[in-house]
Design a protein around this nucleic acid. Structure first.
Length: 572
RNA sequence: CGGGGUGUAGCUUAGCUUGGUAGAGCGCCUGGUUUGGGACCAGGAGGCCGUAGGUUCAAAUCCUAUCACCCCGACCA
């Protein structure tokens, strides 16, 4: 240890905000080179290797084959799939001396598809699952929290190729189980959630979330059944799509629409305050632009529209809130007074909560006026009805109908996708089937953030003294601490135990630094080594102390039996 | 990209309002005393005060620009 580069810090570096980041820095695991770009010091690198090793073993066990692809990728491949243009600013682009375009790979669908289409042409060679553990590059809008969101980070990515949807389903399930084994072996508390597949695209996808309060995402899950989803994709249960309403029969006893003057009152807050009404009665009218023209989306005043859901409902690629000009064009009124009543020639869609508003309030499409007593079906009608809003914890589970969601934050450490033919089609990744027919391969893709997983583990396992590594992740499982290296017997005994530990095949660290014990113990605790073997006073009785980081439990063990103790307590 | 904030020694920072050429704690080096949970004494090394320009007799301090980093929002493993 006296030679190990593990520069521990007594104070928190000010660049860090979350505990896991502070601890990685303080305990000498990583050092920052630039925003979102880190050097892994010996300890940090060792932890990465531990994570990688578990991943590797489980992936291999599941039949996947390891490869290593280039990080530097030619633009041509990305042109083929169209992602050269779609990926946007997040892609690190560079040119070589001949001014040819390249990028630093943020993910490798193109590269792997290129490989497979060139080397596989028969159904007999399928299915196949190839993976790599490699550095990825993404020019993140905002790198943060150390390894949580870097611009350069290490990821395991796997890609599978199949002849049928059914075969993909089978491999997807296989990977799902593999991931469960990986995160269980790493000793992490996690949950699997339904996810939005985002830019990588394709169909079905699930995220593996490590539970932690500092997580960037909210997980909505049901305590009754196994339903869990990200905030992005959590469904809203309990509200039936109301078909019956609106064919003219249901407005008995309801007042006529009334126009009210609301000078300058534009936002939901302003209008509700002005009219002394609650936001649940408001029909929020949002104008969006899509590649198929403008669309009006309606959600309740106290709900937030989920653009991902809207996109899916409309089946469009491009979606953004309309510019003021467009809104004025559609509603013939200044921004802030839009409403669905009387609008013609524009597609209107609504959240399922909308028809349930008995007598709503909404913009009059006329400056400084709103309408009250608006009734769905009598005064306006949506072309499509569906779940369009972000779920709230008060919403019901869409799967079993349980009345309330539970919400907890989590860190996304793994993501599995059924890609389908999104890439293979564009890149003509085909094979010949039994009938000598050319078919497009069906793909799946499976990622794990390696550094992120390590950091997430710290987030879950630490105390005020530092990190408490789960055994499989610890850079060293055991630290041997001679209390005073000046005392020959202590140092020699420690060295002997060190050698024994190595022999058993453990990662052992000998703290031979000429410091006071207090300093050494503090450092080892900060670093998070699960087991300390303290060689000190008890040596004269032929004993050493074995102390557990997690519980503080101390065992006095005879020096000759240390090897046996370790075999029993660490190796198993 | 928008909003907020910070740049002074390896780390944490004082000084900036009210200009006069930099101070502390920790760490590091030397010697000594210590030695079971971040010891003590003595001595020492280390900073063109983020960078560039300007104002001034004089700038860490005032002004302008620029860069870097951190935090909050829209994106993602």
């Amino acid at each position: 240890m006296s030679q190990l580069l593990a520069p521990t810090l007594r104070e928190d570096p000010k660049e860090a905000e979350v505990v896991s980041h502070k601890l990685l820095l303080r305990a000498g695991y990583i050092r920052k080179l630039a925003a979102g770009i880190y050097t892994y010091l010996p300890l940090g690198f060792k932890v990465l290797q531990k994570v990688s090793q578990v991943i590797r073993e489980e992936m291999n066990r599941s039949g996947a084959q390891e490869v290593l692809m280039p990080a530097l990728l030619p633009s041509e491949l990305w042109q083929e799939t169209g992602r050269w243009n779609v990926y946007g600013k997040e892609l690190f682009r560079i040119q070589d001396r001949h001014e040819r375009d390249f990028c630093l790979g943020p993910t490798h669908e193109e590269a792997i598809t290129e490989l497979v289409r060139r080397s596989i042409n028969s159904y007999k060679q399928l299915p196949i699952n190839l993976y790599q553990i490699q550095t990825k590059f993404r020019d993140e809008i905002r790198p943060r929290f150390g390894l949580m969101r870097g611009r350069e980070f290490i990821m395991k990515d796997a890609y599978s190729f199949h002849t049928s949807k059914k075969d993909l389903d089978k491999e997807y399930k296989n990977m799902y189980e593999t991931y469960c084994r990986i995160f269980e072996r790493l000793g992490l508390k996690y949950r699997v959630v339904q996810a939005d597949s985002g830019a990588i695209g394709g169909g079905y996808s699930q995220e593996f979330m490590v539970l932690a309060d500092s997580g960037e995402e909210e997980i909505f899950y049901c305590e009754k059944c196994d339903y869990a989803a990200s905030r992005e994709s959590a469904g809203v249960g309990g509200e039936k799509i109301v078909e019956g309403i609106g064919k003219g029969g249901d407005e008995k006893g309801k007042d006529k629409v009334k126009e009210v003057n609301t000078p300058g009152q534009k936002t939901i807050e302003e209008v509700t305050a002005f009219l002394k009404e609650s936001p649940e009665k408001m029909i929020k009218t949002l104008v969006y632009e899509t590649e198929n023209g403008p669309v009006i989306a309606l959600v309740r005043g106290d709900h937030a529209l989920n653009e991902a859901k809207l996109k899916k409902m409309l089946g469009v690629e491009d979606l953004k809130l309309a510019a003021d000009k467009v809104i004025e064009g559609v509603t013939k009124a200044p921004v802030g007074f839009a409403g669905p009543v009387g609008l013609k020639g524009v597609k209107i869609v609504a959240d399922t909560a909308i028809p349930l508003i008995e007598q709503g309030i909404t913009g009059a499409n006329k400056e400084d006026y709103h309408l009250t007593n608006v009734v769905y079906g009598r005064d306006y009608q949506a072309e499509l009805l569906g779940d369009l809003r972000f779920a709230l914890s008060s919403d019901a589970c869409p799967k079993c109908g349980q009345a309330k969601y539970s919400v907890q934050r989590g860190i996304e450490v793994g993501h599995i996708f059924k890609l389908g033919t999104k890439y293979s089609e564009k890149m003509k990744c085909v094979y010949l089937d039994e009938g000598n027919k050319e078919k497009t391969m069906i793909m799946g893709c499976y990622g794990i953030g390696v550094g992120r997983t390590a950091q997430a583990a710290i987030e879950q396992n630490h105390d005020e003294d530092g990190i408490i590594w789960p055994m499989p992740l610890a850079p060293y499982q055991v630290a041997i601490i001679p209390v005073n290296v000046g005392i020959k017997e202590q140092l020699e005994a420690a060295e002997k135990i060190y050698q024994d530990g190595l022999q058993i095949g453990l990662d052992v660290l000998l703290d031979d630094r000429d410091f006071r014990v207090g300093v050494k113990l503090k450092d080892i605790d900060l670093i998070g080594i699960p087991i300390k073997i303290i060689v000190g006073k008890a040596l004269k009785d032929g004993q050493v102390e074995i102390k557990l980081r997690k519980t503080g439990e101390i065992n006095l063990v005879e020096i000759g039996k240390v090897g046996e103790w370790l075999r029993q307590n660490v190796c198993s």
